[in-house]
């Protein structure tokens, strides 16, 4: 009980202390710098821009058995590339330039995986890769 009342008294003296405006100003500056330091995406000027070139899209292996999987790679060059993937049927796992294609348990035939690469100027190129499940 004694300990509790001592702490209460200490808290009372602390709350009576005038708040130093200098500290508040420093805190404000720190917040301002933190917020303003948020990194914007780098602008792409024409001198840095590399034209989009989608060289190839391939699966390795491109033929496998039912229920199997394969790795698909997109080889492209350009500025700030993004890779979008779609498939006629099946699951694509992962993201980016390399993904994995997984066939459903009873899926067979030739399926097409499409990769669309976009660059910083929204230019797009598309390649299609055939995968055969036997």
């Amino acid at each position: 009980m004694e300990y509790f009342s001592q702490n209460l008294r200490l808290l009372g003296t602390m709350s009576q202390k005038p708040i130093n405006m200098k500290y508040l100003f420093v805190l404000f500056l720190v917040l301002l710098v933190t917020v303003s330091c948020k990194k914007d995406p780098e602008p792409t000027d024409d001198t840095q821009y590399v034209a989009l070139k989608f060289d190839t899209l391939y699966a390795s292996p491109d033929t496998f058995g039912i229920g199997g999987q394969t790795e698909i790679k997109a080889i492209a060059s350009g500025t700030q590339l993004t890779y979008a993937w779609s498939v006629s049927l099946g699951d694509i796992l992962g993201s980016g330039a390399t993904v994995n294609f997984v066939a459903s348990p009873c899926m067979y035939g030739t399926y097409q995986v499409t990769c669309t690469v976009s660059d910083s100027k929204s230019n797009q190129q598309q390649r299609i890769c055939n995968i055969t499940i036997q």
Partner: peptide
């Protein structure tokens, strides 16, 4: 069912998704 393009003819062919 799903229509898939045949390779290398690139023509649509109907497939049954048996599973």
């Amino acid at each position: 069912t799903v229509y898939l393009k045949t390779f290398p003819d690139n023509e649509w062919a109907k497939h049954t998704v048996t599973g």
